[in-house]
Write a protein that binds this DNA or RNA. Structure first.
Lengths: 343, 343
DNA sequence: CTGTTAGCGCTTTCAA
DNA sequence: TTGAAAGCGCTAACAG
């Protein structure tokens, strides 16, 4: 147990000033019912004595911690960090801090994190479910206890009582593939992520829909659903894929920035010219696409805004009447295709 | 104020079982002084009633929150995120959570964050000072209050009472530049970051030392200290630099991964062949260097380990005797040069 | 405008 | 082995 010097507390100020603790508390709260002169005296004394309020005591007594719990599937995914940055920005502007936990792509960790938040340390929770998350009772149970929840990104099921923030994955990938088709591409490969993840299912659907709508032949061989949860394996999975195909793709639509970059890397190494022989599109647009040579065309996802929006919805819930039972908003944010040199 | 269903508390369990709150508390604590049979009864009842301890009340009463405060200069720097991941991993394994704040490269924010942590919400603090941070009284003041602090990365001054974790920036860049020199490079450019930042000063020193030691001419023209705190500007700063020089570099040593990538991008666009005409080295090795074509040689910084180490030192401080006054450890972690296609 | 007092939910002596 | 009761530091209802 670390040594802590005894902290100055309200009582100390009160005693020194010969007034009550309550008055000190009110004064520091800038409560107008306190005489200005006392208020000033209190402030000065507090300052002089180096008073620092005890947030824990405040929280216990007020029932509010001003902390927002955030659970993301992983840290090493720029998308999630960017969302966190957005959450943090909005939260701080509204006097909240954020406590981030990673579920490490595991449903079990997700549950544990949620439960640990249930111990009263956060006022509300923002969560992006893992690909493993099939049931939502753990989330519903939290909501039932009256703890506000907002979900974002990978949502498999509507959870009554929780707001959702997402993008239209389906439409976003449809548009991207449509763009490739209109450019005259015929052999369009698809590189997606874990099949269990809703966002990847939707992006795949968008791809299929576009292909069908324009009567472009879909080659099973040109479709890859990456299974990797790890950067390293993604790399070899994609390399193996391209080495194994017999049809030469003239375009590749990929479901993350990283897949897009790895695809470009692999294709360049195999001697393809980008974009002359093959076009590549990434998904996310979290910065790297711009640096790569050639720079990568991307579906831009408004990650920072997504974070801000989730925080906004959560904080709104804090201030809402107690309509826990039927409360639910679904917000779809707009994506756009950012054209660069890879297409 | 969000609606919260009344939570089950110790008192409820106590009443139902006709025992005292104290016994319930002890039972749940697995205190051996409680009869096994009561302990079991308590556990079962708690479970059945859906009891969840109130962490805030526990903290108030125990004086421990089991939360570690982390202050980093920015979120959108993979290095810091990777360090946080390391901190998180170690912390969680030891039953701590982390509360991350960004100082957004501002000394003022750094101070504010620190002060807000001083309100008793964290048991200790891990901090990486911004480039603006010249004085350390804000940190010392925290330490004086008995709150354990560990610093990492950009440390300008020894702060009595705080452990430090860093790498040997000087030596790391010396070795990298030495490597270039031994490869026969003569016109070695240097791209560093904000001059105010200690780590960049050291990396610059390493460059200079290596150049001098091997009697390689240092061309002022080939030296750039980026001033940007923002990704976008870094890009144009580096582009402008290379467009402005009259001496053709045959190697570029850069002080971050991003500078390295931007350098490669710029040089490739200008028609340079990498590594035939010019070699490039990055600093950090946080993943992107591997994907780029050509892949980038990097000074690999053990970021995750750095995070783990800081967390370890902090938690050690929690358990140490109260030798606040003269306590100080400086840990230097090893870097290595990871060779890839850009050299 | 200010003081008294009763909590907030849990831990921890001190007694029994 | 258990219970009673005094805090932890602050808030807020109530009284004056």
């Amino acid at each position: 147990m670390p040594f802590k010097k005894r902290r100055v507390k309200l009582e100390d100020i009160a005693r020194k000033l010969n007034i009550s603790i309550a008055t000190v508390s009110r004064a520091l709260d800038e409560n107008p019912r306190v005489k200005v002169s006392t208020r000033i005296k209190v402030f000065e004394t507090a300052q002089a004595m180096g008073y620092m309020p005890n947030q824990i005591a405040k929280s216990l007594s007020s029932g509010k911690t001003n902390i927002i719990g955030v659970i993301i599937p992983r840290y090493d995914e720029p998308f999630f960090i960017e969302v966190c940055r957005g959450i943090d920005r909005y939260a701080r502007n509204h006097n909240y801090k954020i406590l981030i936990s990673s579920s490490r792509n595991s449903f079990e960790f997700e549950r544990e994190n949620l439960i640990s938040f249930e111990r009263g340390i956060v006022d509300g929770i923002i969560l992006s479910p893992t690909h493993e998350t099939e049931t939502f009772t753990h989330i519903k149970s939290i909501i039932n206890k009256g703890i506000p929840v907002v979900l974002f990104d990978n949502i498999k099921e509507e959870v009554a009582g929780a707001d959702h923030v997402l993008i239209d994955d389906d439409k976003a990938s449809f548009s991207a593939v449509e763009f490739l088709i209109k450019k005259g591409k015929k052999q369009i490969a698809f590189i997606g992520g874990i099949k269990e993840k809703r966002v990847f299912q939707d992006r795949f659907k968008g791809y299929l829909d576009a292909m069908k709508k324009y009567n472009v032949t879909i080659h099973e061989e040109l479709i890859l659903h990456c299974n990797s949860l790890d950067r390293e394996y993604e790399d070899s999975e994609i390399q193996d894929f391209f080495k194994g195909i017999t049809i030469k793709p003239d375009a590749v639509f990929t479901c993350t920035d990283n897949y897009g970059l790895l695809t470009m890397k692999t294709l360049l190494k195999m001697g393809y010219k980008i974009p002359e022989e093959v076009a590549v599109i990434g998904f996310g647009d979290l910065g790297l696409g711009e640096v790569f040579v050639p720079s990568m065309t991307c579906v831009a996802q408004p990650s920072f805004e997504m974070g801000q929006k989730t925080a906004e919805l959560l904080i709104d819930q804090f201030n809402e009447p107690n309509d826990i039972d039927h409360h639910k908003k679904v917000i779809k944010l707009k994506t756009k295709l950012v054209l660069r040199d890879s297409t």
